[in-house]
Design a protein around this nucleic acid. Structure first.
Length: 565
RNA sequence: UUCGGUAUGGUGUAAUUGGCAGCACAACGGAUUCUGGUUCCGUUAGUCCUGGUUCAAGUCCAGGUACCGAAACCA
């Protein structure tokens, strides 16, 4: 951030901004904007853009606007506007100015009239099919519309009648007069206005002509005094048009700069596919914790700090890259490890009875709130002779290098006692239903007075004191790294991960968790990071979502040791 | 076949603009540990290809190759 930090790498956009500012361009001002269309929810790809635009403003002492690109009344809704603003604030950013493309409709119309007057735009009345036909293609130049040279006065009159609503949808269209043979098809007389007798979520029925993206966007940037208009790669071909409009109008000229949009392994980011997942109920809504939407990630328990750290570290380039989800998980764990209080929770319980425990005795043992943060202090957890432990923490017979519960193997119950299983009880089907063990009373708190070591430490809860909860274990949405790479004859939805959600309804938690507030995050020791769900859960009927599991080097080891003999 | 872009370890991203290819994640190995977590140390591994200029090329030049985007009255 400042000069005494070790030299910092700037991406090519920041370098350009820096150069412009140092050269005194735009009076040394830096002004960016984030321009979402309010026709869907923000996802992690938008987060990258938000961090970039707001981050540049912050870094260079400039401003960043939020502008809703609401030029298509058919797609856009107020609901999305509210959600987008909420998500941006949650991410930790605040816009300097709030604008809507629709707020500029009057001025934009005036500029259109100006362009028509100067002979640089005209009213066309080709039907869409014919218009498209005359545009040509990548290999063939287009041809002029027969209406291209309509006199200015006639254009002006038609323009006025269009605006007044005298024509039906699609009957007329305003086009820029550029070059129908231009190798860049964007410059083959692009449409500026189309007629749409549709109610707009902000302007209501005031307009029946709506501007196209290319005509609106650059001018809006200009009106707002934007200095650097940052967008994604697919608009690179539009830049000449962006510049043509501004130059033709003779107004303030922002610099459009393009960067590669974000891609992530094991997920999809296209609005279309995300929408499909929701509509076909393949996920439980836009805020399903498996969704890469900001709302989904919020519910999953992702922190804004982790998301920002991720966005800052992935960098900005023009290379179409795919980031590994592991990187996001790294920053998530990094943040969560620092801030989360630890709790004991058993997701798939099996009974562990201490046969030598004094009947009825309840021992309150001290447990650290967060070993990473001594100032967080400690809490007390009730320990008794009837405990529940994780079914997966017991094996019979024990595999190689197994440090956890097995017959005759002493392990530590975290913050409790050393215990040794001596026998097990099975049901009629042969399933283990109860472990019978003894404890070493001298190891209270988890340490042996003579310094005896045990290799395994496991978590537990006391049966009579534990509370119930539903715990949802989330995993990657897709089973393959690149669900966009679909072999012929297959559908991308076939690659959804069937195990992306596993619900544990029999989970038992340590009693202090009864006070958990919706949205509160914890580490369940040895399991992962969890957040109290604020939609389906409430005090008394707790639901926890797993944000991300702890790293698990045992499962790797186990895999490497191979199938048991 | 047109136009516009992009190529650096498995992944992503740097390289003072011609001067020892660095960082992070991942993987692997080890140390520490009352979480098989955390932390710490270490290892593997890279400049798309072919030529050229130069004392010196990831960087400059020439020619290839591969990949991405673009032909909405969507954004």
């Amino acid at each position: 951030m400042n000069a005494n930090e070790p030299k910092e790498h700037q991406d090519f956009i920041r370098q350009a901004v820096q150069r412009d500012r140092d050269a005194g361009k735009h009076g040394g001002r830096v002004h960016t904007r984030f321009p979402p269309e309010p026709n869907g929810y923000l996802h992690i790809g938008h987060a990258k853009s938000i961090c970039l635009n707001f981050g540049i403003a912050r870094q260079f002492g400039g401003k960043c606007n939020l502008r809703f690109d609401d030029t298509n009344p058919l797609a856009e809704e107020q609901e999305y506007v509210d959600a987008i603003m909420d998500d941006i604030r949650w991410l930790g950013f605040q816009w300097d100015e709030l604008h809507f493309a629709s707020d500029w409709f009057d001025r934009l119309w005036d500029d259109c009239v100006r362009l028509v007057k100067s002979g640089k735009a005209y009213v066309d009345q080709l039907d869409p099919r014919k218009l498209r036909e005359l545009r040509g293609d990548w290999f063939q130049p287009g041809a002029d519309s027969p209406y291209r040279d309509r006199p200015v006065e006639a254009n002006l009159e038609l323009l006025e009648r269009m605006r007044k609503g005298e024509f039906a949808d699609g009957e007329y269209v305003v086009r820029a007069k550029i070059d129908m043979a231009h190798p860049n098809t964007n410059l083959r007389d692009p449409a500026m206005y189309r007629i749409r007798h549709a109610r707009h979520h902000r302007t209501g029925d005031r307009w029946c002509v709506y501007p196209m993206y290319d005509w609106a966007h650059g001018q809006n940037d200009s009106y707002e005094g934007i200095t650097h208009s940052i967008c994604t790669l697919e608009f690179e071909d539009h830049r000449p048009l962006y510049e043509w409009f501004i130059e033709s109008l003779g107004i303030h000229a922002p610099q459009q700069i393009e960067f590669a949009r974000l891609n992530l392994t094991y997920t999809v980011l296209s609005k279309r596919k995300l929408l499909q997942l929701v509509k076909e109920k393949l996920v439980d809504g836009w805020d399903d914790p498996r969704m890469p939407t900001i709302r989904g990630m919020r519910r999953r328990g992702v922190t804004p700090e982790a998301l920002r750290a991720f966005c800052e570290h992935i960098g900005i380039s023009k290379f179409n890259s795919v980031h590994e989800i592991e990187l996001l998980e790294h920053f998530l764990r990094d943040d969560l490890n620092r801030i989360c209080k630890r709790r004991l929770a058993v997701l798939d319980p099996i009974e562990l009875v201490l046969t030598d425990w004094p009947t009825g005795k309840v021992d309150l043992v001290d447990a650290l709130e967060n070993p990473e943060d001594p100032s967080a202090g400690s809490r007390q957890v009730p320990f008794t002779g009837r405990l529940l432990v994780e079914r997966d923490d017991f094996r019979d017979p024990a595999p190689k290098k197994w440090f956890r519960l097995a017959i005759g193997q002493e392990v530590r119950l975290r913050y409790g006692y050393f215990v040794t299983v001596h026998s097990i009880e099975r049901d009629a089907q042969g399933n283990v239903v109860r472990l019978l063990a003894t404890h070493d009373p001298r190891t209270r708190g988890g340490n042996s007075p003579e310094g005896k070591k045990v290799k395994g430490t496991i978590h537990w809860v006391a049966q009579e004191h534990a509370i119930d909860a539903e715990v949802r274990l989330y995993d990657r949405l897709f089973a393959v790294a690149d669900p966009n790479d679909v072999p012929a004859g297959k559908d991308w939805k076939e690659f959804l991960n069937p195990n992306s959600l596993a619900t544990r309804t029999v989970s038992k938690l340590e009693p202090s968790l009864a006070q958990a507030k919706p949205g509160e995050r914890f580490q369940f020791e040895r399991l992962g990071y969890f957040i109290a769900d604020d939609r389906d859960g409430r005090p008394g009927a707790l639901v926890f979502n797993r944000t991300v599991a702890l790293k698990d080097s045992w499962s790797k080891l186990e895999k490497k040791l191979g199938p048991e003999e």
